[in-house]
Amino acid sequence: MFLWEVGEIVRNTLAKRPGAFKVPATGLEIYVVRNFLSAQECAGLIKRIDSDLKPSGLLADEPDPEFRTSQTCDLQASDSLVNQIDHRIAHFLGLPAEYAETLQGQRYAVGQQFKPHHDFFYTDQPYFPAQEKVGGQRTWTAMGCLNDVSAGGQTYFERAGVRITPKTGNLIIWNNLDLAGEPNTYSLHQGMPVEAGTKYIVTKWFRGRKWGYE
């Protein structure tokens, strides 16, 4: 499947989903689905995230120690709740579940952030050959908000002119590529610093092909 075809499948599928609201944005396809996750599911995911946290990493070297300061939990696909949500997100986007990385959880305490970045892979970077072997380019991102944040913690797409406040159960979906299937620089986004409370999210990245070694 060509990368532009992946975009077309999701675009056409979301157009038929009554709950998928397309956010007005400059140069970017981005959607919000309210109450995609139940309060019980959010609580269960938060419990799992808290049980196995580690510092969030980066694929490429970054000299700024404050670039990404959150903590991450690699959730297990063998867990029944994680597996159920993995497949529900994939079905909602109209893509095979095998095209996506397993759900990953993130926790942001006060002051923690993720500075402006893209989710797509830079194909000229040393890390890309390894990523090409395990599914290739990242296409769509689905991010689930697990709790309301007292202050701060918005996801800010500066170039697209969109700022989204985390709300319990909401799912945010965006296309990291353009209509031709090329990396879209308008997908630049950041996790704004949390000013009060704690922020929990789960993130699911879709690839251009089946994820994992074939």
Rank of each mutant, 00 (worst) to 15 (best):
L188I: 07
G181D: 01
P166H: 08
G136C: 08
K167P: 02
H117R: 07
L146E: 06
V134S: 11
H91P: 00
H189Y: 00
Q113F: 01
Y127Q: 08
G161H: 01
G144K: 09
N83R: 13
F36D: 11
L75V: 15
Q190H: 02
Y99N: 09
G144S: 12
W140T: 01
T168S: 11
L177S: 01
E98C: 12
H118P: 01
D148K: 06
W140G: 01
A97M: 06
A100S: 15
H87N: 11
S78Y: 05
S187P: 00
T203M: 12
W174K: 02
S150G: 03
L3V: 01
N184D: 00
R48P: 12
T72P: 13
T102K: 03
E182Y: 04
L171F: 04
N35Y: 01
I30P: 04
Y99Q: 03
P55S: 05
C42V: 04
P129L: 02
F36I: 05
P96Y: 14
A39T: 14
A97W: 15
K199P: 15
K47N: 10
E98M: 09
L81A: 02
A25D: 01
L93V: 03
F2P: 15
T102M: 01
L28K: 00
W4H: 12
A142Q: 13
G27L: 02
P126G: 12
T198P: 11
N83E: 12
V194F: 15
A43C: 10
T168E: 15
V10T: 09
E214C: 03
T139F: 00
S150C: 04
K22Q: 13
T168G: 07
E41S: 10
K167E: 08
R34N: 09
N170P: 05
S150T: 14
G208M: 07
G19A: 09
R17A: 13
Q104H: 13
T165H: 04
G135R: 00
L95R: 14
V32R: 11
I49M: 09
T185H: 08
D119F: 07
E8Y: 01
L95G: 08
W140D: 02
M192W: 07
L58S: 10
Y31N: 04
A77N: 12
Y156M: 00
L177G: 00
E29Y: 06
D178G: 07
A100Y: 11
F36E: 14
H87P: 07
V32S: 06
A43K: 12
D74V: 13
L58R: 04
I173N: 01
I172H: 04
R11Q: 05
K22S: 03
T168V: 11
V6C: 05
V23I: 14
N170R: 03
L58P: 10
T185S: 09
L95P: 12
T139E: 02
E62S: 12
